[in-house]
């Protein structure tokens, strides 16, 4: 089985977001870049599957769409345990353009299982994985919180509103994964970091694609009025405020 894990390169989740160019683009000054959290969990699960030997995994590849500044993200993934990396040399424009670029490589390489995080923590499009599946005409499962080897094949846990399902699906397929897929992301070990330098990282020229959408401006939400403090010995006052001021009880 050949597995592809798609990686987004996103600002660290603790980043205080600022914009430049009169609110038209993210101010990247001082931003630490990380692997999109759900993509990192997807990679972790892929590595666990390979190590478990319960299903035959020949290769785990990772891919990101971005400039040279996205390469540390791929190197980190290789250090964690991916076998090979791809970078499509294009600035991500929107989910469609990114999905299109991934689809070109996915077609060439014929992956059996493609894993994408449920959304990216920057633009929250929640779209790339499912778009990729449609471009490739592959089946997809979304909100996947578990991948389980059972007698040499795979079963999946799909979260539904207020519950979950155990599902099977023919490969090749795209799985859009979320929290629960792996317990904790792996941290690269020194040996992994050394080995990552020897692993192949292929840079591909982008295929012809423009986005369907464009983010034209950003703003920060209006600050909240200050918090009204209530004496811990007077919770009745809180109930009163919730009932008569906020009118929510």
């Amino acid at each position: 089985m050949k597995i592809l894990v798609c990686l987004g390169n996103v600002p660290d989740t603790t980043t205080k977001i600022k914009f430049s160019g009169e609110g038209t683009k993210l101010d990247k000054t001082g931003v630490q870049w990380i692997i999109n959290p759900w993509d990192e969990l997807a990679l972790t699960r892929a590595i666990e599957l390979k190590e478990s030997g319960q299903v035959p995994v020949e290769v785990i590849s990772v891919l990101t769409v971005g400039g040279t500044d996205a390469e540390p993200t791929i190197r980190k993934a290789l250090a964690i345990g991916a076998d090979s990396g791809y970078r499509v040399d294009a600035d991500p424009a929107d989910s469609y353009q990114v999905a299109f670029q991934i689809s070109e490589i996915a077609r060439q390489e014929q992956f059996d299982l493609i894993l994408c995080g449920i959304e990216s923590s920057d633009y929250n499009g929640a779209a790339t994985g499912s778009m990729l599946a449609e471009i490739l005409d592959y089946p997809s499962l979304s909100a996947v919180s578990g991948i389980h080897p059972v007698n040499g094949h795979l079963e999946y846990t799909r979260d539904i509103d207020g519950g979950r399902e155990t599902v099977t699906l023919d490969l090749p397929a795209v799985l859009i994964v979320q929290k629960g897929i792996a317990k904790e992301p792996r941290i690269p070990a020194m040996r992994g970091i050394m080995m990552a330098r020897q692993k192949p990282l292929t840079v591909k020229e982008p295929g012809p694609s423009a986005g369907y959408t464009e983010m034209i401006s950003f703003e920060l939400p209006a600050p909240k009025p200050s918090c009204r403090k209530i004496d811990p010995d007077n919770v009745r006052e809180l109930v009163n405020l919730l009932q008569n001021e906020a009118k929510v009880l």
């Binding site: 989910s95 449920i118 959304e119 929640a126 779209a127 499912s130 778009m131 997809s140 859009i176 369907y212």
Partner: peptide
């Protein structure tokens, strides 16, 4: 979230 992106590609409609 599972359907809209697929629909976007199929209908060539921005999402």
């Amino acid at each position: 979230k599972a359907l809209a992106p697929r629909l976007s590609v199929r209908m060539k409609a921005g999402l």
